[in-house]
């Protein structure tokens, strides 16, 4: 029974292995800049998984905002707040043990749930190749403007979109206010 290798699955396994391995590395490493680096690799591999699932716009968005924006911001924060040359904060072995035990239990439950529904086990290769390749960017844009093109009775997201826009503005102002330099006090410290 030598079945040919199904290549999308091969790439799925590759990307998911990278994503999972570096996610574990994020937990294990004590050095916070390495954590950020592993997180970048994990999130980039997740973007690869998004591309594989046909969500090309979300994948590019993930690369741009998450990896290129949010994480650069995080590393920037790490550098601004570092006291030693290489900051690392150790956790006690007991805490780590409890957390890992609970985590493994949680994972077993989640994975069991995910595997227990037969409809979620995937389709046959023929069915998958019959699915047309459709670009997602324009339908997503229409959806954000309230007009859904993929189904007649699905709702648009105009209000959500507007709320998030205002929210982002508020966040921008709020973050700038919170992080501003505090006049005299700061000068003295420096």
């Amino acid at each position: 029974m030598e079945a040919p290798i199904y290549w999308p699955t091969f790439f799925f396994l590759l990307f998911s292995a990278i994503a999972c391995a570096f996610a574990v590395a994020v937990v294990v490493t004590p050095n916070i800049v390495r954590m950020a680096f592993y997180l970048v690799l994990s999130l980039a591999a997740t973007a690869g998984l998004f591309f594989l699932a046909g969500a090309d716009f979300v994948g590019a968005m993930q690369l741009m905002i998450y990896v290129g924006g949010t994480l650069v911001l995080l590393v920037f924060g790490v550098m601004l707040t570092s006291q030693d040359r290489f900051i690392s904060m150790k956790t006690s072995g007991f805490e780590l043990g409890v957390a890992v035990t609970l985590g493994v239990c949680l994972f077993v439950v989640l994975a069991y749930c995910a595997r227990s529904i037969p409809e979620w086990h995937g389709m046959k290769a023929k069915q998958v190749s019959a699915v047309p390749l459709e670009p997602t960017a324009a339908p997503l844009g229409m959806g954000l403007l309230g007009a859904r093109v993929d189904g007649p009775d699905r709702s648009g997201y105009l209000l959500v979109f507007e709320i998030i826009s205002v929210h982002l503005l508020v966040v921008l102002v709020g973050a700038a206010y919170l992080a501003r330099a505090r006049g005299k006090k700061n000068l003295l410290v420096e």
Binding site: V33, A60, M61, L63, M64, V67, G68, L71, M79
Partner: peptide, 22 residues
């Protein structure tokens, strides 16, 4: 040949900064 090529190129070029920061 990507449907979102402009976005992808800008996103990936933005990652170059990571090497520099590291």
């Amino acid at each position: 040949h990507m449907n979102t090529a402009v976005f992808f190129v800008l996103a990936v070029l933005g990652l170059e900064v990571f090497g520099v920061i590291l």
